[in-house]
Design a protein around this nucleic acid. Structure first.
Lengths: 212, 212
DNA sequence: GTCTATACTATGATAGAC
DNA sequence: GTCTATCATAGTATAGAC
């Protein structure tokens, strides 16, 4: 699809950053260029021709590395959710045992990932629905686990009477949502560092659990 | 596109609810069925054939009412953002003059809209990027105005020293984000009323502006 | 306003040479 | 692993009859 001018950029970031991967060469280039295209135009708005052209190879070369366009998206979604979960778990290991410390650490990691890997997060979060079940399974399992990490911390805080909330599930959803959204507005030119943004979100999350 | 099994539903809601519109008949049916299809599969994942088939007419009949598929999406995005802004303005007229009352009223209206019109909100928020500039202009203007409404209330609260925050812009973005996200998880079967959910979000927003 | 029929282009994917 | 060439299908959109 040659596509008419994209107007409202879905992702202000212009870096198709991927976590460290063992594989290199054309395989990786396909992932990188697909990431940029899927983030900008969406999965269905991107053709295999677009991908091949961006990589600088012919269409047939793409099919040497991936059996279908869906497999490219599936891999990006999986990588994104895997890196997300890795970041959350690493943050929790560094955090203390109090629910407040844990929530703060988790939110900061969550936000940092969505700012640093804005394109990857956008594709993994908003294009996953385009995949058939068999290709999305791994990603959905990861997502469920990561959601559970957040919910458990919140519920532990409530059980210990450290967190006050009218509804712990809604509050957890809200905390997840505000962090995810960072991928849609963060740009280095804003003059706010990623750490600064992450810290503000952690503070907001803690306030959400503090009665007025 | 006959499309393989959609796995991770983007919108749990199953009602393609539209605000009151003057027009009826096939024109409206096209909007309703397109809304459902765009919400479930995305704009590029939906063909004019899919739309015609859902409405129960031939493809050519669709083109009698809309000059292109893009115009159908443009109209849905415009309707969604218009209803959103109408709801925000109505809420503000009913609210008192204190920033807290105004923020609470605005957030409740914002959340109610995203729960009541979940599909419309999803399409208007997440498919707009598929439109070329000339078709998205009206919607973008509305969005900018609605964002300004929220920001202004927040900044007024800060100026009056009623709201405490480390960063008013980030906080406003977070408040907008948590409300938008409701469209992605709200279902009547959850056993939570829309008003209840809206009230919780209003409380969370006020807490975000309250120092610990 | 709706239909049938069709034009034309783009699409995902494969075969077979190098 | 990459290329050229090709297939079968699906895509948007239009013409002209009723």
């Amino acid at each position: 699809m040659s596509q008419t001018a994209a107007l409202a950029a879905r992702v202000p970031s212009d870096s198709a950053k991927l976590p460290e991967l063992a594989k290199a060469g054309t395989y990786r280039r396909i992932l990188e260029e697909s990431l940029m295209l899927f983030a900008q135009r969406g999965y269905h708005g991107t053709s295999v021709r677009d991908i091949a052209s961006a990589v600088g190879v012919q269409i047939a070369a793409v099919y040497v590395h991936f059996p279908s366009k869906g497999h490219v998206l599936a891999e990006l979604c999986r990588i994104g959710h895997e890196e997300h979960q890795r970041a959350l778990r690493a943050a929790l290991l560094d955090a203390g045992s109090s629910p407040a410390d844990q929530l703060s650490a988790l939110v900061r990691a969550h936000v940092r990932l969505h700012a640093e890997y804005a394109m990857l997060a956008t594709v993994a979060n908003y294009e996953l629905h385009a995949l058939p079940e068999e290709l999305a399974g791994a990603t959905l399992a990861l997502r469920k686990q990561s959601e559970a990490l957040l919910i458990e911390i919140c519920e532990r805080g409530v059980a210990q009477k450290k967190f006050k909330t009218p509804d712990v599930v809604i509050t957890a959803a809200a905390i997840g949502a505000m962090g995810m959204r960072v991928a849609q507005w963060y740009r280095p030119e804003l003059g706010k560092s990623i750490d600064e943004i992450a810290n503000v979100h952690a503070e907001l999350a803690l306030r959400m659990f503090t009665a007025r």
